[in-house]
């Protein structure tokens, strides 16, 4: 059943891009359980700094690639009941686990035993979701379904205006944060 579906090139790309992603997550400190919990306790804004910077830098570049025909968009369905419910369960789960799926896998590489145990939990969660999929499809996934919509299409506000606005808000927010907070992980002794 375990079929090698990809050529060697794609396998190499998977390893290379995954490696870079894991490396960046660790250098950005978001593989640290304490940093993630402190974000949700609003004591350390490292997670938001990493994510919003990635969204803005990534978004402007992918927009340019898309407009010059070098990249396609891959938009997820806006079935908003499922997204809302799923995001709520995810928010609770992420605080109890202390990681999200990507940072959890990366944290295993840094020696986190509890991240590894939680990864087995994620595999179990994947099995439970697959078993409940038919029910979800009948009762949840079809509710408030708006399709693969992008905010610029929905609002008529152009992409670039969104990114300028996001950059302005993020800059103002982070200037404020840098002036008024010292992340606890910078006060803790590095390990």
């Amino acid at each position: 059943m375990f079929i090698i579906m990809v050529g060697l090139t794609f396998a190499a790309f998977g390893l290379l891009f995954g490696f870079a992603f894991g490396w960046l997550l660790h250098r950005g400190k978001v593989t640290d359980y304490n940093v993630i919990i402190d974000q949700f306790l609003l004591r350390d804004f490292t997670v938001l700094k990493v994510m919003l910077t990635a969204i803005i830098v990534g978004g402007v570049g992918v927009l340019a690639l898309h407009q010059s025909g070098w990249a396609n968009y891959h938009i997820k369905d806006a079935n908003l009941l499922a997204v809302g419910l799923g995001a709520s369960i995810f928010g609770v789960g992420m605080v109890i686990y202390g990681y999200c799926p990507g940072t959890g896998l990366a944290a295993i590489g840094t020696g986190s035993i509890h991240a590894l145990v939680g990864a087995f939990g994620m595999i179990t969660g994947g099995i439970l979701y697959a078993l409940s999929f038919d029910w979800m499809q009948a009762h949840v996934l079809a509710v408030w379904r708006f399709g693969k919509v992008r905010l610029p299409d929905l609002t008529g506000i152009p992409d670039l205006v969104w990114f300028i606005g996001l950059t302005a808000i993020a800059t103002a927010f982070f200037v404020f944060i840098e002036r008024h907070t010292v992340p606890p992980h910078l006060r803790r002794s590095p390990r």
């Binding site: 799923g86 369960i89 799926p101 959890g104 939680g118 939990g121 994620m122 179990t124 994947g126």
Partner: peptide
């Protein structure tokens, strides 16, 4: 961690 992992993955797949 195990329980949180279950919820995280279930929520992610639903969303």
């Amino acid at each position: 961690a195990f329980l949180g992992g279950i919820l995280t993955m279930f929520g992610a797949r639903l969303a």
